[in-house]
């Protein structure tokens, strides 16, 4: 009876210790490690051996593992940040070179810094989210969603600045749907699929509700642009759906 109580106590402490592992590792192995510790406690209890020595050894051994995994995790995060920073710099070369050859493209240094931060931020979001699941379709879904979301946000920002028409801010509701949906879905593939379909539907609704009266060529271009974004969000949703179904197999 006393061993049972002690065992429960040790298991509670062990579960708390496991929280010190980096999150991805904990999500992958935390349950299994707790189960293994439970099995070891049971083995000792059945052999009528005390649990103190076992708990002391396992706690020490696991603590060493925690230090090792955190060190590895930090070094991987550092490498990822460096890769994303270099990637963002490479992408920044496009507007940098374009500003030299395209007439009227006159960003100041602050503009380039702002764009670099946007590229870097988007890249880091991809790097962090894409490692949630190993399936290629999940990673591709994240990539397509981020590229489409970035392009929509960017083009809208430019459009609002040029036209000074605050009505265009309605397009940000598509991104808001994406942000809230991703948060509610906890980045799980199934929920993200629904989120992306909801984003596509929101954008299609905005396109339908646009006031008519624009010249035909403008209306046609707008329709094509909306269609491309709706197709991209839908494609991303389908990729997440594929990842979700693959995860169930």
């Amino acid at each position: 009876m006393a061993t049972n109580v002690a065992g429960r106590g040790y298991r509670t402490w062990y579960a708390m210790l496991l929280r010190l592992y980096p999150r991805p590792f904990r999500e992958r192995f935390g349950e299994g490690m707790a189960q293994t510790f439970h099995d070891l406690c049971r083995e000792h209890r059945d052999a009528r051996r005390g649990l103190f020595g076992l708990a002391l050894w396992i706690f020490f051994e696991t603590s060493v593992g925690i230090v090792r995994e955190n060190t590895t995790h930090m070094s991987q995060l550092g490498k990822t940040m460096l890769r994303v920073a270099l990637g963002a710099l490479a992408v920044l070369m496009v507007p940098l070179v374009a500003s030299q050859v395209v007439e009227g493209w006159n960003w100041d240094a602050g503009g380039f810094v702002f764009v670099y931060v946007l590229f870097f931020g988007t890249g880091m979001v991809y790097a962090v989210i894409a490692r949630k699941m190993g399936a290629w379709s999940y990673k591709a879904g994240v990539g397509v969603a981020l590229v489409a979301g970035f392009a929509l946000g960017w083009s809208n920002m430019v459009h609002v600045a040029d036209s000074e028409n605050p009505a265009n801010l309605v397009y940000y509701s598509v991104l808001a749907v994406g942000g809230v949906g991703a948060w509610l879905a906890r980045l799980e593939a199934r929920g993200l699929a629904r989120t992306l379909f909801a984003m596509a539907a929101t954008l299609a609704l905005i396109a339908v509700m646009l006031p008519s009266g624009a010249p035909p060529y403008v209306a046609r271009n707008m329709a094509i642009l909306h269609g491309v974004f709706v197709a991209l969000f839908t494609a991303s949703g389908l990729l997440f759906r594929h990842a979700s179904l693959a995860g169930l197999k």
């Binding site: 490690m33 293994t36 510790f37 396992i58 051994e61 696991t62 603590s63 593992g65 995994e69």
Partner: peptide, 9 residues
């Protein structure tokens, strides 16, 4: 122990 086992795995 679990630390070595799951870290290696």
């Amino acid at each position: 122990g679990p630390g070595t086992l799951y870290g290696s795995m």
